[in-house]
């Protein structure tokens, strides 16, 4: 469903992505891992064009989205995103955060989205926080609310940009467990993460990035058992 073709991205004279190609199929859970500064987040952000590739093509459902006249807003409704810093809208309650986009973008009626919103909040364990403002939520609760918000648009895929990196250790688990449940629903997930245990357990496949290159693309079982590249081996030795 997502295909990247020779993606390059430069910020000024600094080239962050140096020609990355790969494909993510429907229902797959992909973990993108690698050392800091390897370009993981930038790569993820090119998928929904929060970063525009300097060169190369991004295809969503066989449609090239960074060329010609494309309604990028419509494409983005297919690709939910969860951010490291949650980015909930602070002036809206949890429920308003969840239902705003489907109500305004998809023009779903208020009753329908409220029912949907409440059931999503229940799913992520925040049924009692519907009318709470984000400033009164813990980090873990915020991130779960953000996941519910992304799900409310009923996307085909969700992009996770280091979803647990800004959390206190005791809250990492509750977010990962919501993500684990999600992985079983058949939704496509692309996860930039430093949680190796989680990647090993939940991801179907792993992309290992180093210095802007996609060094390794393997099923996660194989990758964690015996990485093919020397660079990945070194990396795993350091973090595991």
């Amino acid at each position: 469903m997502i295909r990247l073709e020779k993606i390059h991205k430069s910020f000024g004279s600094h080239e962050v992505l140096k020609g990355i190609s790969g494909e993510i199929s429907q229902g797959e859970v992909l973990a993108i891992i690698g050392p800091s500064g390897s370009g993981k987040s930038t790569l993820l952000r090119t998928i929904n064009l929060l970063e525009t590739p300097t060169r190369g093509k991004v295809y969503i459902d066989r449609e090239c989205i960074n060329e010609g006249r494309i309604n990028i807003g419509k494409i983005r409704t297919k690709l939910g995103m969860v951010f490291q810093q949650f980015n909930l809208f602070p002036h809206m309650t949890t429920l308003q955060n969840v239902i705003y986009a489907p109500m305004k973008v998809k023009n779903v009626s208020r009753e329908t989205v409220e029912t949907l919103g409440k059931s999503l909040l229940k799913k992520v364990g925040l049924a009692d926080k519907a009318n709470t403002y984000p400033s009164h939520l813990s980090g873990g609760q915020k991130q779960r609310a953000a996941i519910a918000r992304a799900l409310a648009m009923e996307p085909e895929a969700i992009l996770f940009d280091e979803p647990t990196s800004a959390l206190d250790p005791e809250m990492v688990k509750e977010v990962l467990s919501v993500m684990k449940d999600l992985a079983h629903t058949g939704i496509t997930m692309v996860i930039v993460t430093h949680e190796m245990g989680f990647a090993r357990e939940v991801a179907d496949r792993v992309w290992f990035l180093d210095d802007g290159h996609l060094v390794e693309d393997s099923p996660s079982k194989d990758f964690f058992k015996s990485p093919k590249s020397k660079r990945a081996k070194e990396f795993l030795e350091k973090v595991l």
Partner: peptide
């Protein structure tokens, strides 16, 4: 804030 809103297709 802008990025979150954009990513929702608003």
């Amino acid at each position: 804030q802008m990025e979150a809103a954009l990513s929702l297709g608003i």
